[in-house]
Simulated scan of single mutants.
Amino acid sequence: MVSIGAREIYDEVIGLRSEVRSIGQQAEGVRDELDDHEARLRALEAWKYALPVAALTGIGGAVVAVVQAVAK
């Protein structure tokens, strides 16, 4: 017959508590990393949408310069 006493149960609960704390700390690290990735993606998306506007502005400036050069 196997007998499990209060001390064994207590020791297991204490062990479980430390494991839960460890998992919580790992989750915090993952959350920080996820926030960093999210910020990087947002920055890339901002460049993605700003790039066509910059390209059009550059092309427009080049066209104006060519027209001015030809008009002289």
Score class of each variant (00 low, 15 high):
10 Y>N: 14
67 V>C: 12
68 Q>T: 15
39 A>N: 06
71 A>P: 01
34 L>A: 04
56 L>D: 04
67 V>K: 09
10 Y>E: 07
24 G>F: 06
61 G>T: 06
60 G>V: 03
7 R>L: 07
46 A>Q: 04
13 V>R: 13
69 A>Y: 12
64 V>F: 10
36 D>V: 05
52 P>A: 02
8 E>F: 00
47 W>C: 07
1 M>G: 11
67 V>D: 08
62 A>P: 01
6 A>K: 13
65 A>W: 06
25 Q>F: 15
55 A>P: 05
39 A>C: 04
37 H>M: 14
15 G>H: 05
18 S>N: 13
62 A>S: 07
40 R>T: 03
70 V>N: 02
42 R>E: 14
7 R>I: 06
16 L>T: 12
35 D>W: 08
43 A>Q: 04
68 Q>F: 11
68 Q>G: 10
9 I>D: 01
61 G>I: 12
15 G>V: 01
12 E>F: 11
30 V>Y: 15
71 A>L: 14
14 I>W: 08
59 I>G: 00
64 V>T: 04
60 G>N: 00
62 A>V: 11
32 D>F: 15
66 V>E: 10
20 V>D: 03
13 V>Q: 03
18 S>F: 12
11 D>V: 05
62 A>R: 09
28 E>T: 00
65 A>T: 07
72 K>S: 07
13 V>L: 09
49 Y>A: 08
35 D>E: 11
38 E>S: 13
45 E>R: 00
11 D>H: 01
17 R>E: 14
16 L>D: 02
42 R>Q: 06
16 L>Q: 09
61 G>A: 08
20 V>Y: 02
32 D>Y: 14
26 Q>E: 12
33 E>R: 12
71 A>T: 08
47 W>I: 13
49 Y>F: 13
58 G>W: 12
9 I>M: 04
31 R>H: 09
24 G>Y: 15
4 I>S: 00
50 A>M: 06
38 E>I: 14
6 A>P: 03
46 A>N: 04
35 D>N: 09
21 R>M: 11
68 Q>V: 15
56 L>V: 08
45 E>Q: 00
21 R>T: 09
46 A>E: 11
40 R>G: 15
45 E>M: 01
32 D>E: 09
58 G>D: 02
70 V>A: 09
67 V>I: 08
65 A>M: 02
42 R>N: 05
20 V>N: 02
27 A>W: 13
50 A>N: 09
70 V>E: 04
8 E>R: 02
29 G>E: 05
66 V>R: 01
10 Y>V: 12
18 S>C: 05
62 A>W: 13
8 E>H: 03
47 W>A: 10
20 V>L: 03
26 Q>G: 04
41 L>W: 02
64 V>I: 13
53 V>M: 13
65 A>R: 06
62 A>D: 14
8 E>P: 00
51 L>H: 01
22 S>F: 14
23 I>M: 14
17 R>Y: 15
19 E>K: 10
28 E>G: 11
68 Q>K: 09
8 E>K: 04
4 I>R: 00
14 I>T: 06
44 L>R: 10
54 A>R: 12
4 I>W: 00
67 V>E: 05
37 H>S: 11
33 E>A: 05
51 L>S: 01
26 Q>K: 03
32 D>V: 06
3 S>D: 12
56 L>W: 09
7 R>W: 02
